[in-house]
Amino acid sequence: MTNKDIISLCPQAFLPFWRRSPVTFILVILSIIYLGFAIHFFGFSLSKILEGFANMKPILVAMFTWQDFSTWNFPGIFDGLVQTLAMAFLGTFFATLVCIPISFLTSKKVFRFTLLRFFIKRILDMIRGVDILIWAIIYVRAFGLGPLAGLLSIFTADVGTLGKLFSEATDNADTKQIEGIESSGSNKISVIRFGVVPQIIPIFISQSLYFFESNTRSAVILGVVGAGGIGLQLTERMKAQYWDQALFIIVLILIMVTIIDTLSRAIRKRIIDE
């Protein structure tokens, strides 16, 4: 069998890429054009980026030359860390409290008023559409600078997300157990108490813990708009160009976040295993 015969038996294998899968090819070309356009839109150039990184050099040097270490405001930094944790904890806790009834109201299995369910779900969607920093900036307007605004913004953002997750968990609850309680002629409250709650409590607790974990990360940045915590300490120092202290705080944040992650992961594992 000659080469020509082989080619004639399977000619598609020898087509160039753009003839074999023209749709993919066109998509790739279009994305490249769009990418070029977007880069042009921002007026990027490699030289600009390189220049920027060159400007980074003195900042990096300043980060690693620690000056007057003994005069740094350690109590202030410690307060910031503690505040951050407290914000994250209370925000998650109150959001959990609020989301439990919400999850019953938005779950198909428990509650039959479709219209109300629809409205609550849309409100949760709206809340989730707004980033936590936007909430923070609004609460700072109303409640003044400080961790209270931070707490409230964590609370609000969490109600949006946890509300959705909790109601999904409730929807996934085992119907048989619910029907079992219903068939014994119990009222709605006992159906929820004995048919639904035992199934979903471990899920809720583990999800709340997970959110506490991720909220510690979010709480760090809320200080950027003045909503208290360690972020406030950090941004103040960055604005004043105390880069050495800024790096110190970033390292502390990383350590704190790692500790919280490890603890919460261990607890979550125990809850799920039980």
């Binding site: 921002f42 990027f44 980026i49 220049e51 920027g52 900042i59 950027v224």
Partner: peptide, 28 residues
């Protein structure tokens, strides 16, 4: 882990210092 651990807005403050105000700092 380090890149993930530091929130983007903290990097953004840094790059605004280095590159000036504008979307380039945010994108990086």
């Amino acid at each position: 882990e380090f890149l993930r651990g530091v929130p983007e807005i903290i990097f953004a403050i840094l790059f605004v210092w280095a590159l000036g105000v504008g979307p380039l700092a945010g994108i990086i």
